[in-house]
C-alpha cells in the first residue's frame, strides 16, 4: 500500500478507536445515570435518593395489586426477586399493566420507602407469540420463557 494511504488508514483507525475510547470513558463515568430505573434491590439498599424524582422498575408481584373502590388509586408491589418496593399511584394504568408483568413507576420515595408514583409505564418483554401458542404453553406447564412453572 502507498505510504500516504497507509498513513491515512492509520488516521482513520485512530479516529475510530479514539472516539470509541472517549465514548467508553463517558459511559463509564455515567454508568449509573444511564439506567432508566432503579431495581427494587438497590432501593432496599438505600441507593435511591429519598424525596427526589426517580423511577423504579421490576415485575408486579402476583396478587399485590389493590385498587380503590371509589377512585383511580391503586397500590402494588414491584420486585426483582431480591427485594420489593410498594408503589402507590392515582391515575390510569397502561393496558399492558398486569400482575406478573414488568412495569416502571416514576415518582418520589417517602420516608417509609413507599414510591408515590406520578406515572406508571408497562414494560413489555421480548416474547412474541400467538394466543394459541401461549395457551398451549400454559397447558403444558411452561411459561413463555420456556421455564417450567
Amino acid at each position: 500500500m502507498h505510504p500516504i494511504r497507509k498513513q491515512r488508514l492509520y488516521l482513520v483507525l485512530f479516529i475510530v478507536l479514539f472516539s470509541s475510547a472517549a465514548a467508553g470513558l463517558v459511559m463509564y463515568a455515567l454508568s449509573g445515570n444511564i439506567n432508566l430505573f432503579f431495581p427494587p434491590a438497590e432501593v432496599a439498599r438505600g441507593m435511591a435518593p429519598v424525596g427526589q424524582p426517580i423511577r423504579v422498575g421490576g415485575m408486579v408481584v402476583e396478587n399485590s395489586v389493590v385498587r380503590s373502590d371509589d377512585s383511580l388509586a391503586v397500590a402494588f408491589e414491584l420486585t426483582d426477586y431480591e427485594a420489593n418496593v410498594t408503589v402507590v399511584y392515582e391515575g390510569i394504568l397502561p393496558d399492558l399493566f398486569g400482575e406478573g408483568q414488568g412495569a416502571v413507576a416514576a415518582g418520589r420515595l417517602d420516608e417509609q420507602g413507599v414510591l408515590r408514583a406520578t406515572e406508571v409505564l408497562a414494560k413489555h418483554d421480548e416474547n412474541y407469540m400467538p394466543p394459541e401458542v401461549a395457551h398451549a404453553l400454559e397447558q403444558s406447564g411452561y411459561d413463555e420463557k420456556g421455564k417450567a412453572q
Binding site: I34, L36, P94, L96, V120, L121, A122, H124
Partner: peptide, 12 residues
C-alpha cells in the same frame, strides 16, 4: 403509547 403508556421516554 398503547403498550408502555407513553410516547417517549429517555431510556438508553
Amino acid at each position: 403509547k398503547p403498550t408502555w403508556g407513553t410516547w417517549w421516554v429517555w431510556d438508553a
